[in-house]
Nucleic acid binder design. Structure first.
Lengths: 190, 190
DNA sequence: CACATTAATGGCAGTCAGTGCCAGAAAGAA
DNA sequence: TTCTTTCTGGCACTGACTGCCATTAATGTG
């Protein structure tokens, strides 16, 4: 019961992306988004805690699924393969959903304010990996090994995503594998 | 000629750190810093473009030295060793200068707003590495290999630095080597 | 049907970072 | 002394964000 909501996170996200496309992220004010949705500015901030959070939409929920993918991996798969496959599966999208997903990631990865703000989200992502690594190796989450693996895994994902923006013809999966190949090459070359 | 300056970046930095120590980064306003220095708020913004830039002090200059360290490395040193040693040397400090350096890094690495903002600085750092890698391998800077190596190198450095905050007794150099060891372990383990 | 309860809205005033503008101050040069 | 250069700092303004609170619109109860 109680008064019914006037909007949804999804509706706000769509309105915002419309304005971002027209005027850019910096060039769009929260007042303009509120007007576009037809809602008070104060209400907007109840749906998204900050302007920087809008481009991510409702991504938070999905971290749980990332955890589940990892935990559901058979233990006989090597650590590195388990993580690589989990990252891959976590980032699988329907072919239809890929263009908007790419637009979203382009906005996030190429807008300085969002690049910066996003590291706070990545921290949770890294924590999922570090926790998994720590468990499989019987280490503490804070130990150097889990932390290193988590940081490096994020690096690979970010590098692959960034390359994906410029090479739409290549699949994200292939780029993730390529990035891992680069890493192996880098580490094992004499 | 012209009117002499009233302050210096260094003086502002010191005053700011005094206040940060007392009230925290978020709890310190630019107005308070200006008052502490004894200078107009408008002037403050001419010395530091944003509050987030103050904790870094005058670090920008030093990226040149990082480039020089890399370029001065003999070509018969393997790529990975060249980078590892350059990162190491770039982060060498007098034993006397280490406690303040650690305080600075603790503030930067543990304050969310600064964690976020700092990625914009790291981008320049990564560019130095990517450029070096591209040159040595005859690739374009934008190619996947240089970008991957740059991202991963940053990951290792950040992981080592973060561990250093909690283990002051261990040298940063040792932690950088340990992080690299973790990476080798991760990539080459069956 | 009247009335209480609940939950969301949105306006308002205020904080804080950051910017453009411009008058004024202080130094050296002519 | 006057001109020129350069730095200062006040003022007004924008834009994100917050706390406070009256208002609104549902639902539940007698």
């Amino acid at each position: 019961m109680g008064r019914p909501v006037v909007t949804t996170p999804g509706e706000i996200e769509q309105a915002a992306f419309r304005l971002f496309a027209a005027a850019g992220f910096e060039g769009t004010t929260m007042a303009a988004i509120a007007a576009e949705v037809g809602v008070g500015q104060r209400t907007l901030f109840r749906y998204y805690p900050s302007k920087n959070d809008i481009p991510w939409g409702q991504f938070d929920q999905t971290l749980d699924s990332f955890r589940q993918i990892l935990d559901g991996t058979p233990e006989d798969v090597s650590l590195i393969d388990a993580i690589q496959q989990a990252v891959l599966r976590f980032n699988e999208y329907d072919p239809d959903a890929q263009p908007p997903h790419r637009d979203r990631m382009r906005l996030i990865l190429r807008t300085p304010a969002l690049q910066a703000h996003s590291v706070l989200r990545y921290a949770d992502w890294r924590a999922v990996i570090a926790t998994y690594v720590a468990r499989r190796r019987g280490l503490a989450v804070d130990d150097l090994f889990p932390q290193t693996v988590a940081q490096v895994s994020l690096s690979l994902a970010l590098t692959a995503y960034d390359a994906w923006l410029d090479h739409p013809e290549t699949s994200l999966a292939a780029l993730l594998d390529d990035a891992m190949g680069c890493l192996r090459d880098y580490v094992t070359a004499d």
